[in-house]
């Protein structure tokens, strides 16, 4: 893609630098409803780390983070069996904490999840699989929920690899 670069900053994925924290602070004092779209897998790339830092900044400034939608490889953020080394951030638990403390809905695209082996107990049973891999309170849902989030929240911010 390097030879075909275009002005990503106009609408492209937010990435990498500490300015994401500044972005959340620049919105001023009026509380807003945020949704995040996470398309990067945990650990392999920075997208999930950045999304979580942005999420922390959003709620720290008194805004609402109502929805996080996981699409593409982002569905691996919901892996129930993720067991990172103890001296590294536990991204799956960090998302769950966000849900527990702020009521953020953690929505996982069902089509992306099923392809990649991220299934809840119901889908596992439906497909005849032993065990399930989606960690509650993550929930499988359709792409329609992403579209809906895009139109019902004040901001939708994308974090892609």
């Amino acid at each position: 893609m390097k030879t075909l670069s275009w002005p990503r900053r106009l609408a492209g994925p937010v990435r990498y630098d500490s300015s994401i924290v500044t972005m959340a602070m620049e919105v001023g004092s009026l509380p807003m409803r945020y949704a995040l779209l996470v398309q990067g897998p945990p650990y392999s790339v920075q997208a999930s780390h950045s999304a979580l830092r942005f999420a922390g900044a959003v709620v720290a400034r008194g805004h609402q983070l109502d929805t996080v939608f996981f699409y593409h490889d982002g569905v691996y953020n919901a892996a129930r069996l993720a067991s990172p080394p103890q001296d590294e951030p536990h991204l799956v638990d960090a998302w769950r904490n966000l849900h527990d403390q702020h009521g953020t809905a953690l929505l996982v695209c069902i089509a992306s999840g099923l392809r990649r082996g991220i299934v809840d107990a119901k889908e596992a049973s439906r497909h005849g699989k032993e065990g399930f891999s989606l960690a509650p309170p993550f929930e499988l849902t359709g792409l329609g929920q992403l579209i809906d989030a895009g139109f019902t929240h004040d901001r939708l911010v994308t974090f892609a690899p």
Partner: peptide
């Protein structure tokens, strides 16, 4: 043309990349 992208993006409520 790419010069027209910013205005075009402005015209849409939701943009997905």
């Amino acid at each position: 043309a790419r010069e027209a992208f910013p205005d075009f993006f402005q015209q849409h409520q939701l943009i997905l990349n």
